[in-house]
Every structure is written in C-alpha cells, then in structure tokens.
Design a protein around this nucleic acid. Structure first.
Lengths: 253, 253
DNA sequence: TACTATTTGTACGTATGTATT
DNA sequence: TAATACATACGTACAAATAGT
C-alpha cells in the first residue's frame, strides 16, 4: 500500500510564480505529510518519480525539496531503498490554570530543560505594566529562557516579574533551573494562570535563531499572566513554540 | 561603502537562497508589522528607500513586495504621501468550556454568520468514533460550515454528530443558522467543551479556497469535543482559523 | 551467482525567474 | 531601460545501491 499524496496527477496546490520556489512548497507539503497522518506505518515516502508525477513537477525539483529536508534532519535517504521520515512525534503541551513547562511535557521526552539565556532589570512598558498591574516605568526583572526537549529547542519565552517582590528571580532561577522552584524559593508557594492569548505567525529572525528553524517555519505565540493565590499578578510571559514540534492542549474544568 | 546600521541589520533577517524570494520574505515581514504593533498609529509604512536599507536589498525589491501586498488588498499606496495599511484588526475568539462561535465574536464585528456548505450521513472513522464514544462505522451526521465575520470567511469547520440522537441536525441547522439553536431544537438544552487540541500549519489548498487566503498563509487548527450536561459526547469538530484574522483567547476558570 | 526491477545519485544542457548595478 | 549574475526548473541520460528471483 502506497501513501497517496495528492488525489490528481497534476496537483493544483503547487503554484508557480508565487514568490515561493516549487522545491520549497513541495518541501513544506512533505513535512505536513507526517503530522497529517497520510503516511505508511514505516515512515517511507513514495519514490521520487511518483512524487514528481503527483506534484506535477520534474523529479529534480522533488529531489531538491528532499535534499533540503535531509539537511534539516526531517528525512533520511538510502540509495536503492527509499526516503524515510526520521520520526519525531509532536509533543503535547497542556495549557490551563496550572500550566508549568516541566510538568507539561513530563513523560513525553527523556530529558527536559529550561535554560536562562539572558536577564536584566528593566522599566515596564505600557503592555507589561498593564498585565502586571504596576505603574508604567516601574522596575521589573526580565528573563529570556529557552525550553529544550531532548536537547532540542522547542520553545522560547520572555518573562517579566515585579522587581520589588521578586527581584532575586534571575539568580534563584540560575540555582534551581525552574521558574516554579525559583518562585517557591522566593515565597510564592503556588500560582495559577489567569489568561492566555494565542496567535500563530511566521517565525521571525529571532525565532529562527533561537529555535533553530528553517525560514518560513511557523510559531505558536502565547501571551499569558500568572497570578499568586491572592490574585496578584506575578509573571507576564510571551512564549513562542515551534509549531512543528508542539501541539497545545487546552484543559477545561 | 561605509559600515552603517543598515549593513548590520541587513544580514540578520532576510535570507538569500532560502527557496523564498526576497520580495516574498519582505512581503511577509511587512504583513507582520501590522499585528506585531511595530507601526505608527496612522498605519503608515516607512518610505521605500528606508525599508530597502533596513532589509539590505535594492529599492526595486521592496517595491515588488509592496505591489504584491497592494494587489492582495493589504496595503494602499498614495503617490507623494506614502504607503498605508488597510487596517483590519484581529478578532479575539474565546476558547473555553462554553465556546460558541456567535457569542465569541459578538460586539467585534457588525455582521456574523455561520453558513452550512455541505452535509452528509457518513460512517464514523476510527478517530471520530473514539471522540464520540461510538462503535467504529456507526452512523454520524457530517457538516461542513464556514464562519463569516462582516461577510469575510475567518474560519471553516467539519463537525460530526451521532446520527441516532441528532440525525436531523443538518436540516435544523439550515432553518436556525446556528449550531447552538439547532442542538436546542433537538433537545440538547446545554453543552460544554470537553477538550481542545491546538496546532498551526501552513494553509492547504482546501484552506486557501475556503478562507480565501494567499499561498503561504497560516491556519490555526483546533480539534474539539462538546458534551451534553450528562457528559455524553454530542459533537466532534475540526476547525481551521485564518491566523491573520483571528487570535484565540483561553479562558481559565 | 547472475539477472532484473526499483530507487536514489550524478551530470550536462537549456530556458526562465529574480535581483543588482 | 539595459546588462549582468545567479537561482530555479525542466529534460534526458546514465551510474550506483538494494532487494528479490
């Protein structure tokens, strides 16, 4: 049984002169095959000549698409045998009242890590001040972190904390390696998520660098506020997830 | 040529030989300026020569990017004055226990509509049967709907309902024009959302046609199950939102 | 072992699109 | 507007590796 990629021989979804090269469009389509489940169990891609037929392009163009995906580590080719996906299932990341990075992905990967890459004390801009319920220009501690699953970056976040009550969060994070533990050490025994706003865009150059993505990749962006048991905002965050690697599950109730 | 700010900022964001033409990358970047809020209040774009400097490309290339966005209806140019966004703010669509399309977008648009474009009675595949807690191959009613805000498509959904209890949902929907009203007419006075899974991908050809998107556009995809007050699954849906037009807000508690 | 069919890898030539100068 | 350089895409042909007969 072969995987059917397109229903007709000349696929209308590949567009010429769109500003995106054919190999790039095909590369994106092949990437989607994996997650859309239109694939054999062994993760084998149809042969090049067949993909060329189905996409309505020359075999070279398909080869160009495949070679870029090999470069990226998505595919693996074996001469005489075929082309295969290096299987990397998408991680399910729960978003709810009690969202925590490490707890969320537990059990789905062998190693999990949150790395602090930068921090500073900065005045709150209007958006940050509003989210944290502070006066504009009030001092906040800003952290830039990257979430690693099995050593590979899957998310990156900017977080702001009120400097008056949580001024030591950067140092504490460096010692503990976790936001939850750092907050606990600073007297915030528990916290819950008050709100999350979710959008999706093309990855910017920051995202490409930090999440090691290819141009044109997609990021899921969340904007969220955590509050302590008394309802006081303690953390405002903007997180960007690699959409290829992560799916978000929303917990109701 | 002297070393300038333009040179240093040039090589970071726009990539040559990435399979995406420079004008297309710049076009995508300009599109993002609007939603990322890096813009003057009047929606005015910096002059072409400045954009060319900042992106590190020739002014011709910027002009090519802008002319495509004008073609698409995203920008509007005025000779001698400048280039402006035709502003279309993103709609906030809440996802929570009591998610409903019409209630969600109320007050943000002048007209709202859910249109039924196709329906059929089909046997449940494994995924649908599992979600609805039915036997595989059991009869379900399938609906394809499109959500319109101010006459423009912003979402499209496939929904499955158990045919035994809700066999008349298609006809009832045609009369009432709303899922909530149709369910009420069939004896389901109330329902809540049990789960939502969220991913983001490039728009497929189906999405492009139904949501009137440009190639390379992004869709937010949700997979959700609604249950009646007794906890019985009554609806399984796959919805695709135009990421340019919609942001999802997650209600906790 | 040898033969064949299948599939990936390499090479050359040509035409067109893209971007700069 | 024109000249130039390079990327993209196609067509054809053949070489190399694999699996089965």
């Amino acid at each position: 049984m072969t995987a059917t990629v397109a229903e007709t021989s000349a696929d209308s979804s590949i567009r010429r002169n769109s500003g995106v090269s054919l190999w790039r469009q095909i590369s994106d389509r092949i990437r989607r095959l994996e997650t859309d489940g239109q694939l054999d169990a062994d993760g084998r891609l149809p042969p090049e000549f067949r993909l060329a037929e189905e996409f309505g392009v020359n075999r070279h163009t398909v080869r160009s698409a495949i070679s870029h995906l090999v470069q990226e580590g998505v595919l693996r080719t074996e001469q005489g045998r075929g082309t295969f996906f290096r299987s990397r299932p998408r991680l399910a990341y729960p978003i709810g009242r009690r969202t925590r990075f490490s707890a969320g992905l537990e059990g789905q990967t062998s190693t999990l890590q949150t790395v602090l890459v930068d921090s500073a004390t900065v005045p709150a801009d209007t958006r940050v001040a509003e989210a944290l319920g502070m006066a504009p220009q009030a001092h906040t501690v800003w952290l830039r972190t990257i979430g690693l699953a099995d050593g590979e970056p899957v998310s990156t976040a900017e977080s702001w904390f009120p400097a008056d009550s949580l001024g030591g969060i950067a140092d504490t994070f460096r010692r503990t390696g976790s936001i939850t533990a750092a907050l606990a050490a600073l007297g915030v025994a528990d916290y819950t998520r008050r709100s999350t706003v979710l959008t999706a865009t093309h990855a910017g150059d920051d995202d490409l660098a930090r999440l090691k993505l290819a141009p044109g990749a997609i990021v899921l962006a969340t904007e969220s506020v955590n509050v302590d048991p008394a309802g006081r905002p303690i953390q405002y965050s903007r997180t960007r997830f690699s959409a290829d690697r992560i799916e978000l599950t929303i917990e109701n109730g």
